[in-house]
């Protein structure tokens, strides 16, 4: 690798890290993701600073043209990050589903409660709970359902 190429890679890597840091300071990216990206950047910088490392590894693995090993490393780093994000997305999906369902069920409970409040207020009777089967809603048998453990 020529000095020029190495310098370019290092400058890009540092600029990328700074950009990442800026995102982190603005809270546009989580610490966990930043760690992952910085880890990838550090690998790239190490390779750029010590190209003989790349040559040695390429020789050991039987790669004739060392820079092509660079591609392999880059692809593996990207693959790891994309896979990680795929997992995170699936988890988020699951979480959003749980939250949405809880909100829906709580809304239904609230509907029934405000209904029975109207009923009580309207008839002037204060100590009689509405006698239909739906009053079991307000008795909290469902809360365990909503607070399901992960």
């Amino acid at each position: 690798m020529s000095i020029m190429l190495r310098a370019t890679i290092i400058v890009i890597a540092i600029a990328f890290s700074l950009f990442n840091l800026r995102l982190l300071l603005r809270r546009s990216i989580s610490e966990r993701s930043t760690v992952l990206w910085l880890f990838g950047t550090i690998i790239v910088i190490i390779v750029a600073v010590f190209p003989q490392l790349l040559n040695a590894v390429a020789y050991t693995l039987g790669v004739d043209y060392p820079p092509s090993l660079l591609y392999l490393i880059a692809i593996l780093v990207l693959l790891t990050i994309v896979m990680y994000q795929s997992i995170q997305l699936s988890k988020l999906d699951e979480k959003i589903r749980k939250v949405t369902q809880s909100v829906a069920l709580l809304g239904e409970k609230l509907d029934k409660q405000s209904e029975s409040v109207v009923l009580v207020g309207g008839t002037g009777v204060e100590d009689t709970p509405a006698g239909d089967s739906k009053t079991k809603i307000s008795q909290g048998s469902g809360t365990s359902q909503l607070g399901e453990a992960p």
Partner: peptide, 14 residues
């Protein structure tokens, strides 16, 4: 009718 309402669309299964 009892109503449970998702704030956003989750799909048929959900």
């Amino acid at each position: 009718v009892l109503i449970a309402s998702h704030p956003c669309n989750l799909g048929y299964g959900a």
